[in-house]
Computed example of a mutant assay.
Amino acid sequence: MSTLTRPPYDPELKAALDLMPTRPPLSNDSLPTARTNRFTPPIEKVLDGHEVVVVDHTVTSFDGREIIVSTMQRADHERTDGPAVFSIHGGGMILGDRWVGAEALVKWVETYDAVAATVEYRLAPEHPDPTPIEDCYAALVWFVEHSDELRFDTRHLMVAGGSAGGGLAAGTVLLARDRRGPQIAAQLLMYPMLDDSDTSVSSQQYENIGIWNRNDNRFGWASLLGDRVGTAEVSIYAAPARATDLSGLPPAYLDVGSAEVFRDEVVAYATKIWHDGGEAELHVWNGGFHGYEMIATSALSIVTRAAREAWVRRHLGF
């Protein structure tokens, strides 16, 4: 397939993309430098001017190692019947920290008096599968077990994540179902990284172009899975696109740009949920590249955020 045969970018987004500096392809050599480049504001800047209390907690993961889970609450938080959000950050399984996407968490905490938690899961390739997904699940279990102390209603718990965090969120929800773990009310999967197979049309269309392209995606999956990538030895929790049964899951919101690697796998995942009798709201935003609404100010970015917010409010009863 020619890489030139692909849906175009939204004109506003293309203008923003053209202004962004180029970076070398992700590899073992370039990864250390890539990790020094933040793609969201530091948490101190995000919290500036907001009456939100952040507390770091030490949580024991599946292998006895300690990870950090940070909680957020309004300074005046007292209610015990409110909602909670468990957030998993993006970064291709190899980049980022728990504060990626913190702007949305602060907004939900302030606006809805929600309690939020975000997990510092260990990154590949230093910590390959199953460490990232098991870290996320251990953190979720800890969060729910401390609901009385943190003062939230476990019946109104949303698991959320974007990109790799969206894939880990989907995997965490599957683990909760299969291990009869925490009850989850909703799953917010923003352009999730779901499929290690590298066989979709969209992955081929965006091989050498965009914020997160086919090379980056291959490197991320290989870092997580090693020699198992693309084989039958990969679990549905690491790559949720492999799941054949998506019944018994909480309502899902999935969105993705039409002009990015993850487009086809996100559409396929929503379709599987519907085929198995579940609830899914799917948005394929025309001309959107990966993570555009976090990077570029545009009409499409505004509409994208508004649609997500409406779904969150509707499904958690905020």
Rank of each mutant, 00 (worst) to 15 (best):
W311E: 03
T22Q: 13
P125Y: 13
H127N: 15
A310M: 04
M158Y: 01
Y9C: 01
E51T: 00
V109D: 12
D245N: 05
V266Y: 09
V144Y: 03
L189P: 00
I211E: 11
P24F: 01
T111G: 00
R308G: 05
A114N: 03
V284M: 04
S223M: 02
V173E: 07
R177K: 14
P250M: 04
K107M: 08
D113P: 00
D18T: 06
E293K: 05
A169Q: 06
D195P: 02
I88F: 09
G166F: 01
D264P: 00
P240C: 00
M93A: 12
S203K: 04
P192N: 00
V312G: 01
I68P: 00
R79H: 12
A299W: 01
H290P: 07
W108V: 02
V173R: 03
L19S: 15
G161A: 14
T172A: 05
T172K: 02
V303Y: 12
V141L: 12
D18I: 03
Y206W: 06
W221R: 02
S298E: 15
L300F: 04
A160Q: 09
L300V: 06
D48A: 13
R177V: 14
A243P: 02
E120Q: 14
F39T: 15
M294Q: 07
T111L: 12
L246Y: 01
A84G: 12
H275V: 01
S202N: 08
F86D: 01
T244D: 12
I302Q: 15
P8I: 06
S223T: 04
R214G: 03
E103D: 10
G288D: 07
A307I: 12
L300P: 00
I94L: 02
F318C: 06
G220Q: 07
T154L: 04
Q187D: 01
G167N: 06
S30K: 06
A185Y: 01
F152H: 06
W221L: 09
V229S: 10
Y292M: 07
W108D: 02
F62N: 13
S61H: 10
K14A: 15
G92P: 09
I236F: 08
V284P: 05
R151S: 14
I94C: 07
G96I: 11
A222Q: 13
H275G: 00
V119T: 11
T271P: 03
F318R: 04
W108L: 09
A296R: 02
V109S: 10
I209C: 02
P11K: 10
H77Q: 11
E279F: 11
R98M: 04
G64P: 03
A102E: 04
A124N: 03
G161E: 14
T131F: 11
Y269H: 13
Q183W: 06
R218S: 11
T199N: 09
D129R: 05
R313V: 11
R122S: 15
S247D: 11
R79K: 13
T297Q: 15
S30P: 08
W99V: 13
E110S: 12
T244S: 11
G90N: 05
S247T: 12
D63S: 04
R214A: 13
D178I: 07
G257Y: 01
E51L: 09
